[in-house]
């Protein structure tokens, strides 16, 4: 474990450089560059707002703003986009770099870290864009923003733990790469992103908290929509799951790294 961290530290320049390169290659040939990273999620927000706000009659309980629903959506999609990107990219990261892994000896864990770094950068940009929109919509954020790093950490931990575990298994069983995106689609709708838990029947609410992402998304919403600190007791469960999946990922990595290159 210690040597693993040490080697990763030794490769820190490579990781940072590779994140930069990924940005550079992504924007090498399109003019809007970084803007595209935030246009996609914002477009998603706009679509859901247009389609659903009429149906869901715009007003959210406990918030006085005509754009309440758009704000609520933005918070949810902000958190979902990080989770989704990290999980999806980690899922395929080893397969994508199969040839590299086979022919150059370097610490394999740099690859998911590069992906994560890139996703975090995207997340930061989208976060800033969200803040800007909130200000424009006359719903300026409060000091509760200081809780955001904790939410990002939990979100990232869970996404990385699951993503890495599935990413490693995907090398051996390629069906996993096909199943996980499908699961993610269901997952999106099973998470209170486009609706609120208060819209659900009482009996189902507890069930929704079984989804570790619910508490994380609700944390983002608490901070950005309602302007208060997240329900910390609710976060214990996702935090434990994040730690558990990360531990599983590390265990799998240690076992699999021997055989991963054999299969690639």
């Amino acid at each position: 474990m210690k040597t693993m961290l040490f080697t990763l530290w030794r490769y820190r320049y490579f990781i940072l450089g590779a994140i930069k390169n990924e940005l550079l290659t992504r924007f090498a040939r399109n003019r809007l560059g970084a803007i595209w990273m935030i246009i996609h999620p914002l477009a998603q927000v706009a679509i859901y707002t247009l389609v659903l706000s009429a149906v869901l009659s715009a007003k959210l309980p406990g918030i006085n703003n005509q754009y309440a629903y758009a704000i609520y959506l933005m918070a949810g999609i902000l958190s979902w986009s990080l989770f989704n990107e990290v999980l999806n990219r980690c899922l395929n990261v080893f397969l994508e770099h199969g040839n590299l892994l086979k022919k150059i000896a370097f610490p394999h864990l740099t690859l998911p870290l590069i992906v994560t770094g890139h996703a975090l950068l995207n997340h930061a940009l989208l976060f800033l864009a969200t803040l800007a929109v909130l200000v424009i919509l006359l719903h300026p954020p409060t000091l509760s923003l200081l809780w955001i790093p904790l939410m990002v950490l939990l979100n990232l931990g869970l996404a990385l733990g699951l993503g890495l575990s599935f990413g490693i298994l995907n090398v051996f069983i390629r069906d996993i790469g096909q199943i996980v995106p499908v699961i993610l689609q269901f997952w999106f709708w099973l998470t209170p992103i486009v609706y609120t838990t208060s819209m659900l029947p009482e009996s189902y609410r507890a069930l929704f908290l079984l989804n570790p992402l619910s508490a994380i998304v609700m944390g983002y919403q608490d901070i950005l929509v309602y302007g208060h600190r997240p329900e910390l007791t609710q976060l214990i469960y996702p935090a434990c799951l994040a730690a558990l999946t990360l531990a599983l990922a590390l265990f799998l990595y240690r076992r699999a790294s021997q055989e991963m290159v054999d299969i690639l």
Binding site: R10, Y11, Y13, F14, G17, A18, N21, L100, I104, F106
Partner: peptide, 12 residues
């Protein structure tokens, strides 16, 4: 060149 050197473990 920087990228590959990094991959081989060279620092910046």
């Amino acid at each position: 060149a920087y990228h590959i050197a990094g991959l081989m473990g060279c620092s910046r």
